[in-house]
């Protein structure tokens, strides 16, 4: 179940963010705050963004921030920062409003999580509903209760 990977307080909506890097930092910090990883993972993600560019902006309006599996990670986890005002990442999929992040302690434990995530996000209207959701509860229903 996808919902089991979202720790307490790991889904946040807010008006805007100063930059894409700030939004990524905040999203990954939600993984830290919800107990999925240690703080050093934030730097690992930012380093990877610096080296590889915005490669994790994988669909129009959506980023999936992550770094390689690492010792900083305590458990497979996901988090989401949804912005009302999108930010610019430099990707062809700009502007970005949905900044997901994930972490995995090794190269296998997140396979099921990403499989479930991919299936949900490929479902008609899920992306639009997340982009346009008027309240946090609507987003939580989609991600945690699979209610579209």
């Amino acid at each position: 179940m996808l919902s089991s990977y979202f720790g307490p307080g790991s889904i946040v909506t807010q008006g805007t963010s100063p930059s894409f890097v700030a939004a990524v930092t905040q999203s990954v910090s939600l993984l830290v705050a919800s107990g999925k990883t240690e703080l050093s993972y934030v730097d690992e993600v930012l380093e990877s963004l610096k080296t590889l560019g915005p490669y994790f902006v994988i669909a129009p309006g959506l980023a999936l921030a992550h770094a390689k599996p690492s010792d900083s990670v305590l458990a497979p986890g996901m988090a989401l920062l949804r912005l009302d005002e999108p930010v610019i990442s430099g990707s062809a999929n700009d502007p970005v409003s949905l900044i997901f992040s994930f972490c995995s302690p090794n190269a296998s434990e997140h396979m099921e999580m990403l499989g479930d995530f991919g299936q949900l996000m490929s479902t008609d209207q899920v992306m639009n509903n997340l982009l346009n959701a008027s309240a946090l509860s609507v987003i939580e229903d989609i991600l945690l209760k699979n209610a579209l």
Binding site: S48, L64, H66, H110, G118, S122
Partner: peptide, 16 residues
């Protein structure tokens, strides 16, 4: 890039 996130999603959706 890392063979860990995007590629796994790409694989599962390509299989579908």
């Amino acid at each position: 890039g890392a063979g860990i996130g995007t590629s796994v999603l790409l694989k599962s959706n390509a299989e579908r």
